[in-house]
Amino acid sequence: MFNIIYILWLRQIKRYWRSKSRIIGSLGQPVLFLVALGFGFAPMYEASGQGNFIQFLAPGIIAMSIIFTAMFSGMEVLWDKQFGFLKETLVAPVSRFNIMLGRTLGGASVAIFQGLLVLFISSFFGFSLPSLGGFFLALVFMFLIALFFTALGTAIASMLEDMQGFQLIMSFLVMPIFFLSGSLFPLEGINQVLYSVIRMNPLTYGVDGLRFGLTAQGSFSVGLDLIVLLVLTIVSLIIGAKLFSRIQT
């Protein structure tokens, strides 16, 4: 079982590592957000007495990088469906749950690596790196965010037939999830309706936990962030595995 999960994990890593353009390309958007928002809003944010804006913004941008990479990794199922490789794994004498788990862990690892790259880049924009304990707590949240969104991507891709639906998902699901998660603005004092929507967003808890790990500041308790994200990750893995096991090509 572990061999199967390992080889599927390794495949995802190799594919990512060999695609240098993907690594560099996916850093473009986070860097743009750090530059444009970081430098653009910093004076206003700091003038209102809320502290260093880069310290607030960087965890949100790291989360953004993770969810985009994770969703893309999950949706690679579609790619494999279209280019035939999925059939090779589906006719193998192994459980589909193991296939899904291996792929998801591979996708999540890639997303975490991408998040760590953005964390490193953030330090050049003035972000103070956290203590070792904070870093490990942040790593736990990075892992949960990555796992949740890779499983979600896999679940969605299992239902779709071709790549045309992918852009739709990115526009109508991933972007709203990111913007309505407290990644870019503090939750204190915002409109009540918006606040309620944000509280229903899984990423909100991921960003909050990540921010707590990296900067020791957060809107909710770390325990709540951890429990909500953990439960949702397990649910998305179960749903993802169920939908993946039903794929017929």
């Binding site: 061999n3 199967i4 390992y6 080889i7 495949r11 190799k14 594919r15 060999r18 695609s19 280019f83 035939g84 490789f85 999925l86 059939k87 090779e88 794994t89 006719v91 193998a92 004498p93 192994v94």
Partner: peptide, 30 residues
Amino acid sequence: RKSFGIVFQDPSLDSELSAYENMYFHAVLY
């Protein structure tokens, strides 16, 4: 699934992996 091998109508190799890696991947799956 252990009893048959298959060559599909459309290619089903991972084009980003080498020939050896594609074979090794299959060996582990089986």
